[in-house]
Every structure is written in C-alpha cells, then in structure tokens.
Amino acid sequence: MTPPLTTATPRTTPHPPAPGCPERPCVTELRLSAFAGHRGTAFPLGPCTLLAGPSGSGKTTALRAYEALAGLGGGARLDEVFPDPAACVPERARPDAQRRRGFRIGCTADGPEGPVRLDLAVQAEPELRVVGERLTSGRRVLLETALRDPGRRAVQAAWHNGGSVPVTRAPLPDDRLGTALLPLRVAGKTEGQRQVLAAAEQMVVALRSVFACDPLPGRMRTPAPAGSGHLLTGCDNLAGVLWRTREECARRHGLFVAAVRAGCAGTVTDVLAEAAADGTVRGSLDRGDGYRTGFGRLGDGELRYLALALVLLTGPGVLEVDPAGEVPAALQTLTVLADGFDRALDVPQRTELLRLAARMGERGHIRWVGAVSDASWAAGEEGITVVHLEP
C-alpha cells in the first residue's frame, strides 16, 4: 500500500457545519493526491460548494473523480468508471522499472461514525487494477489492501476484526472497491467487525446517490417521449419528467413554478407538460393571458435554469441515480455534480439557483457541487463553500 497521502488545500471561503450531516452520511472532502493535473490537492465540500477557476484549472477533472468514486461505491468495476485510465495519470508521470503508472484519489465521509477516510491507489498501465486501498476511522486502519502478486487478479486484504484474531486476511478482486465488498465478507459478530461494517456502510452511502447534471438546451427543445422515466444527465427528457412530477406532488410543483418565475423573463403562472397525438410530451410556460411559450422558443439560459431548478426540487426517485436501496431514503443525501454550472446563465439566474441549493442543503436532503469560471457573483451568499482553483 502507498504511504499516507499528503494534501494541500486550496484557498476556501469558510462555511458553517452542514446541519444534519452526522445523521446523514456525506462526503466532506475530495482528495486528488495524484490525478490528472492535480497533485496533493484536497477540496473541502460543504452542503453547497462552488469549484471556481479558469479553463484548465481542473474543475471538470475534480467532478469526474467524484463521480468515479461514487460509481465504485455502488459496486461498479474500474473500467466502467475509468474508461480512459491513461488520462487520469498525472502529467509527466514516468513509469517505473515494470512500466507501471497510476493515480491516487480519495475522500472523507462524515456521519454517525465520525469522519471516515478512504484512499485508493490505482494502476492505469500496463493493466487497470487496484493496487492499494485504505479505509480508516481516526487512527485505526479498518481495511487495507495491497497488490502482492502481479500475476493474480486479486489484492491481499486485511481488515480489523477485534476478536481473538485481531486481523482477518483474504483476497479481494483487483477491479472493484474493497470497501463496497466488505458487507459481503464481514460477519459482524465482534465489536471490531461491527465497526468495520458501520464505517464501510457510511462511506458507501455517502458516495451513492450522485447525479451528474449538465443540461443540454438543444436536446431539451424537442418533444420528449411520454413516460420517459428518470431525468437523464443532459435533461433531454425534461418535458416527459415534468409530466410526471407535475402530477405526483402539487406542492413541489408549486415550488418549482415559483423558482421558474424568479429566473425566467416575463410572466409565468405555470409550467406545463402536454401530451401530443404522436405520443410525445411538449413543455411550455403558461403566461397567464391565454398564451404559452413552448420550450422550443426559450433561450439556452432559461432552459438550463429550468432543468437545474427541477433537479434541486426533486430527488433520487426522479433522477437517474443509484441510491442505496437497503438504506431508508431519510438517511441518504443526494449529491448533484453540476459541471459548467454558470454556462449560459445570467447573474440573477445563478444567484437564484445558488440560494435554492443552499436552502435545500440546510435540510440535509441534497448537496451541490458546481463548477464555475468565476465565483465573485456569489460573494456574500450564506452557506456557500467556494474553492478557488488555479491552473
């Protein structure tokens, strides 16, 4: 296993502790120890966080790393979350004598068990595989894995036992996150085993339920299929999902209309989703005077605003996410990753969405991580964590 990772924290704007975080597991720090253009970097994450910096500062890279950890926490294979592993290797990193190169990422999840830290070392070349993983709580190492035999597709794992035998050793697959596999391997009979299970569950629950959102206005202007199910990452099927949410909860739809009214030009009395004879659904804004503006006539900023507001006012049951089904929804937190959050939005729209995200974050149900080129417009807003990145 690699030695303990060191981190260098970018300049941040302080934020108050997240209400409800001890009861709801949540990721409070993302670490890119050696990942693409990042080295020794740590990002503190609050209920509502903005990663701010110019093009090339690594904002998108950070969000992709977070999304990859979320996928691993949900049981995905390495090749599913890192389709281009060579791009994750730090720039100018030289291979060792065995021609191996890799990267290191990690995170901290806070919750009932206190801060739990996960650090992961991945070999990208010549074969994609986990070469080391460490799960710690305080000063105690709960799980540690290492690649002992390069000829085997497994890592040797050791986890805290707390019984007559202090450590249990067994092989684990080298293409998955060991922490996510612990509930299938640990019996939970001793106090030490229960501690391992609780910490692993906290980490997995904190990582799951992530929705990466980047609305694509060009696709949102076309009618959506009726019964289109969950909202897609690009929000292509916004009108179809709106058809569903409008019928499911009148109160939530009322909040959505109020948010749209604050961010769109002209009078807005309702946001409609109407079925057409061809089986599609078309969205429109009701202007209250008998006139309706179809989504096809709205500008890019208005459509992105509509989509992001709907995301903030819905949840895992509406979005295309992978929640931890074995954990009650009341104990889970949805994390939204919004790359290019400020794209095509004017300052009033950005501010309104940020305030909405902060209000939802206060309740503990949702966390928001958005990438912006400049965050000066957010100065003075309460409950916002701003992380400044430099190229």
Rank of each mutant, 00 (worst) to 15 (best):
residue 367 R to L: 02
residue 358 A to Q: 12
residue 366 I to F: 01
residue 332 Q to I: 11
residue 357 A to R: 01
residue 366 I to M: 14
residue 341 F to D: 00
residue 356 L to I: 05
residue 367 R to V: 03
residue 349 Q to D: 06
residue 354 L to R: 01
residue 359 R to G: 04
residue 333 T to M: 10
residue 344 A to K: 07
residue 341 F to E: 00
residue 334 L to M: 10
residue 325 G to H: 15
residue 363 R to M: 07
residue 341 F to V: 06
residue 332 Q to S: 11
residue 351 T to D: 14
residue 334 L to V: 05
residue 370 G to M: 07
residue 347 V to A: 15
residue 357 A to I: 01
residue 329 A to R: 14
residue 354 L to G: 02
residue 344 A to M: 12
residue 339 D to K: 08
residue 332 Q to Y: 02
residue 347 V to P: 11
residue 349 Q to C: 08
residue 363 R to C: 01
residue 361 G to H: 02
residue 349 Q to H: 06
residue 348 P to C: 09
residue 370 G to R: 09
residue 351 T to L: 15
residue 353 L to H: 08
residue 356 L to A: 05
residue 329 A to M: 12
residue 348 P to A: 07
residue 325 G to D: 14
residue 341 F to H: 04
residue 354 L to I: 06
residue 328 P to H: 13
residue 364 G to W: 05
residue 329 A to E: 15
residue 342 D to K: 12
residue 364 G to Q: 03
residue 331 L to H: 15
residue 352 E to Y: 11
residue 339 D to M: 07
residue 361 G to N: 03
residue 331 L to D: 08
residue 360 M to V: 11
residue 329 A to T: 11
residue 364 G to D: 03
residue 358 A to G: 01
residue 327 V to N: 03
residue 370 G to H: 06
residue 339 D to C: 04
residue 362 E to R: 14
residue 340 G to N: 14
residue 367 R to P: 02
residue 366 I to W: 00
residue 350 R to I: 10
residue 350 R to M: 12
residue 352 E to C: 14
residue 344 A to T: 13
residue 342 D to W: 10
residue 324 A to R: 09
residue 355 R to G: 09
residue 367 R to G: 09
residue 346 D to A: 10
residue 351 T to Q: 15
residue 343 R to Y: 08
residue 340 G to I: 01
residue 351 T to F: 04
residue 332 Q to F: 02
residue 333 T to F: 00
residue 335 T to N: 05
residue 358 A to T: 06
residue 341 F to P: 00
residue 334 L to Q: 06
residue 370 G to L: 06
residue 335 T to A: 04
residue 333 T to W: 00
residue 335 T to K: 03
residue 324 A to H: 12
residue 342 D to V: 10
residue 329 A to Q: 12
residue 332 Q to V: 11
residue 336 V to S: 04
residue 356 L to F: 04
residue 358 A to P: 02
residue 327 V to F: 09
residue 327 V to M: 03
residue 360 M to I: 06
residue 346 D to L: 11
residue 348 P to N: 08
residue 326 E to Q: 13
residue 370 G to K: 08
residue 357 A to T: 03
residue 351 T to W: 06
residue 353 L to I: 11
residue 345 L to C: 04
residue 342 D to A: 13
residue 347 V to M: 10
residue 343 R to N: 12
residue 366 I to L: 15
residue 357 A to H: 02
residue 354 L to H: 01
residue 330 A to P: 07
residue 343 R to C: 08
residue 366 I to A: 10
residue 347 V to K: 13
residue 367 R to Y: 01
residue 350 R to E: 14
residue 328 P to C: 09
residue 354 L to A: 03
residue 363 R to T: 15
residue 360 M to T: 05
residue 324 A to L: 10
residue 343 R to K: 14
residue 325 G to Q: 15
residue 350 R to C: 15
residue 358 A to H: 08
residue 368 W to Y: 15
residue 359 R to I: 04
residue 366 I to V: 14
residue 331 L to W: 10
residue 369 V to E: 09
residue 367 R to N: 07
residue 341 F to M: 05
residue 344 A to R: 12
residue 366 I to T: 13
residue 368 W to K: 01
residue 344 A to H: 13
residue 367 R to T: 04
residue 360 M to H: 03
residue 362 E to K: 11
residue 337 L to R: 03
residue 347 V to I: 14
residue 349 Q to E: 07
residue 334 L to D: 00
residue 327 V to D: 00
residue 348 P to I: 07
residue 327 V to C: 07
residue 360 M to E: 15
residue 324 A to E: 12
residue 338 A to E: 04
residue 324 A to F: 11
residue 326 E to D: 15
residue 332 Q to M: 10
residue 348 P to E: 02
residue 334 L to E: 03
residue 370 G to I: 10
